[in-house]
Simulated assay, not measured.
Amino acid sequence: MRYLKFYKPYGVLTQFTDSLLGSPEDAQSGRLTLKAFIAVPKVYPVGRLDRDSEGLLLLTDDGILNARLINPKFGHERTYWVQVEGIPTPQALEQLRQGVMIQGRKTRPAQARILSTEPDLPPRDPPIRFRRAIPTTWLELTLREGRNRQVRRMTAAVGIPTLRLVRVELGPLSLQGLTPGEWQDLSETELAQLRHYCS
């Protein structure tokens, strides 16, 4: 069995082939896939990260572990650093914590806090749009579900649109030690922690 963690860069599809084109990537389309970074056969991503999101992705050929991690009934934690437009009010943060209505359903309660300093992340390529007149804030959000574009929909629902989104933790695993486009096999300690977490 193989277990890899990967720092997905902005603009990369969370799949090995571009289903729109029927090929791994097309230089003219600019749609990069995981195949451009990971040459390990028969591993598949656990869950997804949108093309315009960055950060930690777990890949494995362990179908049982994959199924357990993505099954919403187990409520596995995913932690994100989120740069939002504006300054969240206490009410907006409380809404995120209690759950907000998106696509006709309320999200599960989340952990939400303002980061006291901007996180030490590599610059995004391309950079986010900068507007001098509108401040931005970095939040840390921990969710126990993984609905489509959930973080972006949640922050938009409380009036603070997401500008940049980076997943930094998945259960016990963290992004630490990786730079965008890098991957590594899980260490024995990480794998033991992951198995314990999923048990």
Rank of each mutant, 00 (worst) to 15 (best):
M1D: 06
Y3V: 08
L4E: 05
F6E: 05
K8V: 08
K8S: 13
T14H: 06
Q15G: 01
F16Y: 11
F16L: 03
D18H: 11
G22Q: 09
S23V: 15
S23D: 00
P24Q: 07
E25F: 14
E25R: 14
D26H: 12
A27G: 13
R31K: 14
L32G: 01
L32T: 10
F37I: 01
I38R: 07
V40W: 04
P41Y: 10
P41F: 12
G47V: 03
L49Q: 05
D50Q: 10
R51I: 13
R51Y: 06
L56D: 03
L57D: 12
L59M: 15
D62T: 12
I64N: 11
N66A: 12
L69F: 05
L69P: 08
L69M: 13
I70H: 07
N71F: 02
N71M: 04
P72H: 08
F74D: 00
H76Y: 10
E77R: 15
E77H: 13
R78C: 00
T79P: 01
T79Q: 11
Y80T: 12
Y80N: 09
W81K: 03
W81P: 00
Q83H: 02
V84N: 09
V84F: 06
E85T: 13
E85I: 10
L93Q: 06
E94G: 02
L96T: 02
R97G: 01
R97I: 03
G99Q: 05
M101K: 13
M101S: 12
G104D: 00
T117E: 14
T117G: 00
D120M: 08
L121Q: 13
L121K: 08
P122Y: 10
P123V: 09
R124Q: 13
R124W: 09
D125M: 05
D125T: 13
P127R: 11
P127W: 08
I128E: 15
R129K: 14
F130A: 12
R131S: 06
R132M: 08
T136M: 00
T137I: 11
W138S: 06
W138L: 03
E140L: 01
L141W: 02
T142G: 02
L143C: 02
L143F: 05
R144Y: 06
R144Q: 12
R147Q: 14
N148R: 14
N148G: 03
R149E: 00
V151Y: 03
V151P: 00
R152F: 04
R152D: 06
T155R: 05
T155S: 08
T155L: 04
A156F: 01
A157S: 15
V158F: 03
I160M: 13
P161K: 13
L165V: 07
L165M: 07
L165K: 04
V166T: 15
V166H: 09
V166K: 06
V166C: 11
V168Y: 05
L170M: 14
L173A: 04
L173T: 04
S174C: 01
L175F: 04
L175K: 09
L178G: 10
L178F: 07
P180V: 15
G181Y: 04
W183K: 14
D185K: 07
S187A: 09
S187I: 10
E190V: 05
A192M: 02
Q193F: 02
L194I: 10
L194R: 11
R195T: 09
H196I: 07
Y197S: 01
